[in-house]
Each structure stands twice: as C-alpha cells, then as structure tokens.
C-alpha cells in the first residue's frame, strides 16, 4: 500500500499543510507568549481572511482573480487586525487578561464572528479562483501549482514576521513584555499598546493564512474549527509561547498529519494528534521544547 508516489503525495500535501499551519500557529503562539492568554476565536480570524478574499475577488473586482487575491493579501490583515484590536480594547482589557475569563470571552467572540458571517455571507461554501491556475504533471499524478505557490508565500510571510519580531522596536517591546510585563512597564514599554498590537498581529497572521488557503478549500463560515484545533496542537507541542518551537512543531505536525492522512485516514490523523497534545501537556506542561529564557 505504501508506494513511492503515495509517499511523495503525502509529503507534498503535508508541506502545504505545514506552511499554512505555521502561519496560523505562530499567531496563536505569539498571543500566548506575550499576553499569556489563549484565543479560542483564532480560527475565526482564519475564516475571516478566507471570506475577505472571496469578497475581493468575486464581488469587488470581477477582473482577474490575481488582482483580487493581491488586494485581499493586504486588506484581510488590515481588516482582521482592526477587529482584533477592537476586541482587545472592548473585551480583553476590561477583564484584565484573566486567563480563564479570556477563554470564555474569546469563545463568545468565536460565536459572534462565525454567526455574523453566517448572517451576511450565508451558509454556502463559495469557491475562490486561485490567482494563478496551473497543474504540474508528475509521472504518477498531477498536482496543483497554486499549492506550491502557497508554500512559497507562507515562507516569505514567516520571514517578514520574523524580521519584525527581531529587528523592529515593536518587536523589542514584545519580547520585553513577554519576559516580564511589569518590569517592561517600569522601563517605559507601553504594555497595553503592546498587548493590543500583539493580539492584532496574531489575528493578522491567521487572516493571511486564511487568504492563502481559501483558493484551495473554498470559503465557508464553519472553516475556522480545523485551523484552531491544529494550531492549538502545534502551539502546545512546540511549547506554549515558544516561537521557534512552534515553527518546528508546525513542520512536524503538518507533514506528519499529511502522511497519516494519505496513508491511513484523516480522522485517525487528527485523533492521534489531539491525543498527543493531551499527553504532552500532562507529561511536560511546558511543552516539548523548553524555553531557552526563563
């Protein structure tokens, strides 16, 4: 049953999954790392990204799908980032980022976002034309060229995020807040604004991955559940809040999931992954990767 072509397909599917997952999970991990809260509505930001790309390419510009896609690549993070900032200001700040209450509140946010989309966009899964459409014919099977572009774009975006985090002032503030919010505040870091921007940045990463995945999967109001679950898994296995661990875990889980899904059953793959998380958390509450800094 396990033949070369099947393995190759598994690897390719896994790589696409891993690349997009890395973006989504990085957002979740960033939020947890700096703010120490878990955002249950994270998957809905992915969904919003997909809805925006549909809107840009199908409704706004009837023109070439690539134009709409490029517009969405800019617009989705901006819109979703603003929504996230509003959520931070209206909700999270008011409950003082209490971990348990944040979970309940973001769960509320999940329903509000998802159901608002259902109300306006409707219950249908709508197709989005990929910005470029071509097919790569391998000797055993064909593969979508767009999927390979997704890998490249995701890597590029990860690189940009990495630069922002390590080189810019805001990145410095974020790292300082992550290490110790109170000390950072004492040194003049505007912690509240850092929180708002981190929450927004996390959401923007999710939205961008939604834009990338939409031409592959269609846009649907319930599509947020899977990315949330998988990025949860990745963030936990990688060590809560550990960004390098998150990326590594995304590669591992993404490709691993692709392999199991192709060779056995997608449901089984997800089941194994979720159980893995539970076990990891129980065995080592800090995650597989220990954070280098205390």
């Amino acid at each position: 049953m396990i033949t070369g072509p099947a393995l190759l397909l598994a690897l390719m599917e896994g790589a696409v999954g891993a690349a997009v997952l890395a973006l989504t999970a990085l957002g979740l991990s960033l939020v947890f790392g700096v703010m120490r809260v878990i955002n249950i509505a994270h998957g809905e930001f992915v969904m919003l990204g997909a809805i925006i790309v549909w809107w840009c390419s199908a409704e706004l510009l009837g023109a070439h799908p690539a134009l709409g896609f490029l517009l969405a690549l800019v617009m989705a993070p901006v819109v979703v980032g603003l929504i996230a900032m509003a959520a931070d200001w209206l909700v999270l700040r008011r409950i003082n980022y209490d971990p348990e209450r944040t979970i309940v509140a973001t769960m509320g946010l999940l329903y509000v976002i998802q159901q608002s989309v259902l109300m306006t966009y409707g219950p249908d899964a709508r197709p989005i034309e990929p910005p470029v459409y071509f097919r790569i014919q391998l000797p055993w099977f064909g593969y979508s060229g767009y999927k390979l572009i997704v890998i490249a774009l995701a890597l590029l975006l990860l690189g940009i995020t990495w630069l922002i985090l390590s080189k810019s002032r805001i990145g410095l503030y974020m790292r300082a807040t992550r290490l110790d919010a109170e000390t950072a505040q004492a040194f003049g870091v505007p912690v509240r604004r850092v929180y708002a921007s981190v929450f927004a940045l996390g959401a923007m990463l999710a939205a961008v991955s939604g834009v990338l995945i939409a031409p592959i999967q269609q846009a649907h109001y319930l599509m947020g559940a899977d990315p949330l679950l998988l990025s949860f898994i990745v963030v936990i296995v990688g060590g809560l809040g550990n960004l390098r661990g998150t990326l590594l875990a995304a590669a591992l889980i993404g490709i691993g999931e692709g392999m199991i899904a192709v060779l056995f059953s997608p449901t089984l793959a997800k089941m194994i992954a979720t159980l893995l998380v539970a076990l990891v958390l129980i065995a080592r509450p800090g995650g597989l990767m220990r954070e280098s800094a205390p």
Binding site: P99, M271, T274, A278, L281, P285
Partner: peptide, 27 residues
C-alpha cells in the same frame, strides 16, 4: 489523566480529550 494538570492546562487537556472522543465517534 487530566487531574495531573490544573488551570488553563486543565482546560486544554479536557478540550483535547473531548475532541479525540468526538473524532473517535467518527472514526
């Protein structure tokens, strides 16, 4: 299994176990 952790970790572990149970009903 789950009572080895508490707080937010407890929440996530219960969520994950329930998710695995849900997937098991499908599998």
């Amino acid at each position: 299994v789950v009572l080895r952790v508490s707080g937010v970790a407890f929440l996530i572990v219960t969520l994950m176990l329930a998710q695995a149970a849900f997937l098991a009903t499908l599998y």
